[in-house]
Design a binder for these strands. Structure first.
Lengths: 347, 347
DNA sequence: ATGAAAGCGCTAACAG
DNA sequence: CTGTTAGCGCTTTCAT
């Protein structure tokens, strides 16, 4: 007795609930169920109710891999940071994630900076997921890496750095402007022998150079020097590098009366070391930090620092990507969020 | 003149390179190309070379959405943290991401704690991506949320907290043991009037209670009291809450000579306020922090604190998930990584 | 060791 | 507004 049905070589279904199951229960076709979930307006009220009821009763959760494959919209956004631990980008990642989540998008996190990381592997991992966009912060060693994302057809938002010539979209602020402003700020407060303590990452270095150039122009250096005294440390900067840096700078030039640190953490180290050395702040030395991290206002003395709207950067980056993904127009794809020098007791 | 070809209603291909294209170039079938990439051992050397050459020359990058759909392996791992900004979980997320990346997995980041977040939305977002596993830190308000992940068939690693009855896998340390150890530590150093300054999150509270219970047992409280003086602040704890908290505690009980803070940031505030108040540390007051964050060792005085192997937690969590995903056996799905009290000048 | 066929679960395109 | 059909790009199953 032969069985005429063709030998089913089906891949046994996982028991997983699918849209077809839901549609069957609701008594509609799968595509109608799909529309009920994705474009409810395109479906009659009666059917919408039935589909929703079926979803409720079954606890159905759509498979976004399948949806993404079919629609070419993954609702996934990749973000690349040098490293997440102790990073200055956290507030931005936080608001990026939150803003994306509100709109039904998720964040995939990549680290470009940890040991052994290979940039092309990270790139392939990102492109392979077919995200709807990529947010870059601090970014890659090779400039060419960025371009590879673009040529894969991905919207790219660069952040934190107006100084770049953006390859696509950009939201950030000018590190040159920060450096120049801090120099002017210290000059206006009567400081005449300024110095910097800076991590050697590219953005900090640009702040450092602008600070130095402006200080020289304003005559805040020993006669004839063409740069301010500086002390550079490997990124990431730490409280330790602040303590060591202050001692190194003062040994080189005890007359320093104003100091720009490339991070608040470093400034914390400076305040700590100053206290240990018996240097009065701000009387003998004015100190300016960078970032306005939570603790800055609660140090003793409270730290003057440069505040950056990190959360706004994250929110705007998310909106850029989402607009692109939904093919809505973007008025202005380059945004300078600016910065503010928050004056406190340390100056 | 009629065209006999059936009206193609193809969704015009995106121009995107596919595995079939690569296979064609290499002169093999698509499935052979697939095997060459995924299970090179199952393919003859000659073909392997040709496929690899074709991949190189075209710059082909596999579509992981398609691969994940077909194979039911997404190579994606979801991690949930309360919030990323200022979180104590960063070192763990960092090593989690790095370890996953080394093995070809990526991390999707979810925040359970930001304003407006709805836990079921986050859950649906996670389950909808069909990740190969979920790592939970600090986790959800509702305990039932965790179980929903499990019932969706996802491997779940809970972290940072041995006190839970784990629903699946677990890597962390005992907050009770931390609290008790710190109390014993202070007792051994001769302190007899101890107090705590704690955020009100569940893990900090358990450290707090164990600390208090042990202190009472060791007779480190005013005669007859059944708990140590405490000051609770809303999470996340900050330097500000440390400053305010110290003043509040000393007003209530000026005889306090030992203090356990639920975070290093809070301890920073305590040291700062102590300096402002002219309280000598450790002579008048011994201070212990929690977390051993980068700056702890560089404060003045250097901060005694509880060190946790965050990176190890992240690495182990990643390995748990990957083992499960690849159906390799796991010897021990519950790991206590322990902790260390690092003694410095503040005690 | 290689290939052909048949899906994975969903949605775009095209009717009605 | 609803349904039919044909994929999205890959891998599983089965056969050779």
């Amino acid at each position: 007795m032969s069985n005429d049905a063709p030998a089913r070589r089906s891949r046994r279904k996982n028991g997983g609930l699918t849209l077809s199951d839901v549609a069957k229960i609701a008594g509609v076709s799968p595509i109608t169920a799909s529309r009920a979930l994705n474009t409810p307006d395109a479906v009659s009220d009666a059917l919408l109710q039935r589909v929703r009821a079926a979803v409720e009763s079954t606890g159905y959760i759509p498979n976004m891999l399948a949806g993404g494959l079919a629609s070419r919209k993954s609702r996934l956004v990749a973000a690349v940071v040098p490293t997440i631990a102790g990073s200055v980008f956290l507030d931005m990642v936080q608001s990026l994630t939150a803003t994306l989540a509100e709109q039904g998008y998720q964040l995939m996190l990549g680290q470009s900076g940890y040991v052994n990381s290979r940039e092309d592997e990270l790139l392939e991992a990102i492109i392979g997921r077919r995200p709807d966009g990529v947010v870059l912060t601090g970014t890659f060693r090779s400039d060419q890496a960025k371009r590879r994302l673009l040529s894969a057809g991905l919207p790219v938002v660069e952040t934190w750095d107006m100084s770049l010539s953006p390859i696509d979209m950009l939201v950030g602020f000018s590190h040159e402007a920060v450096g120049a402003s801090v120099a002017q700020f210290l000059h206006a407060r009567g400081r005449r022998h300024v110095a910097t303590l800076s991590a050697n990452d590219p953005r900090a270095m640009r702040r450092h150079r602008a600070f130095s150039d402006t200080a020289v122009r304003l005559g805040m250096v020993a006669n004839g020097a063409n740069a301010v005294p500086d002390h550079l440390v490997p990124a990431p900067s730490t409280a330790r590098s602040g303590r060591d840096g202050l001692r190194a700078l003062l040994e080189r030039d005890p007359s320093i009366d104003g100091l720009f640190c490339s991070s608040d953490m470093m400034a914390l180290g400076v305040l700590t070391e100053a206290q240990a050395l018996g240097i009065r702040i701000p009387e003998q030395l004015a100190v300016v930090g960078m970032g306005d991290h939570g603790f800055a206002k609660d140090l003793e003395p409270a730290l003057t620092t440069v505040q950056v709207k990190s959360s706004e950067i994250g929110r705007i980056a998310a909106e850029f990507i989402i607009h692109r993904a939904e093919e809505r127009p973007i008025e202005q794809a380059i945004v300078d969020v600016g910065f503010t020098i928050v004056e406190r007791e340390s100056t």
